[in-house]
Amino acid sequence: MELSLYERMRNKLLKTADNFKEKIENVMYMGSFDDDFFDELEETLILSDLGAQTSVKITESLRAKIKETRSKSKEEVMGFLKEILVEMVQVETEKPQLPTIMLVVGVNGVGKTTTIAKLSERYKKEGKKVVIAAADTFRAAAVEQLDEWARRVGVDIIKSTTGADPSSVIFDAIGAAKARKADILICDTAGRLHNKVNLMKELEKISRVINREGDGFSIHNLMVLDATTGQNAINQAKVFHDCVEIKGIVLTKLDGTAKGGIAISIIDEMQIPIEYVGIGEKSEDLIDFDPKKFVDLLFE
């Protein structure tokens, strides 16, 4: 099981991996580790969406390491680089204590609703009792979209009409989750750009309702990020994290991007673990994220 997941991730991510390793090898090709090499390495990392800040950090660590060991071998330097990345992506993960409430947040169009569908199917298969709350009352047909998923997956859904107050939907959903003795309540929210003050306030209100009403439940908020987003993803994560405490990140659409780099940069800057990655449209395409294996793949 574990192996097949890894294999699938590898197949889907082959493009990411190929690209990354190939590029790094191209930089190394020059054979000498001088300033030009570090400049070019930095550029390569930026090109892979690692962001200027993280890229500088990585090249500086590598520079120090090479100076310390006086290494001249390409293989060794490649190994150092990998070590640095592996160390960078190690953050503590926290498994949600059941019963739990998951508030799923993110900007528009990152795949929140689809992720929720995949998550609920996965938990249901594990034998958990799942209830989902359709609190995206803003976008046209968002409730219908989630409703359709709930029907397909076969989980309970608590919903209201478009335009309703999302906090009230959450309030009702928590009541229902308690009454039905649910293990996991997953709450969908409307996509919002993180610089819209009023919409972020709405999210704060939802979060307050959860804190107040959700006695007996642990709170495990998830943020969904689109892997094709550039460095803006970090801004998004920071602002959302300030607004509601994010416990884990779901990185979607990782199958399309040739740059998995944002994964590393997110973990480095936010110190929040990526819990799942989405590598396709099917429900089994949401897989556990293993940071170390991810780095392994980049260098395979």
């Binding site: 900007v107 460095q231 803006n232």
Partner: peptide, 12 residues
Amino acid sequence: VDGMTGQESVNV
């Protein structure tokens, strides 16, 4: 195209 797309926008 999403205006927030990163380096990938060019490939897309």
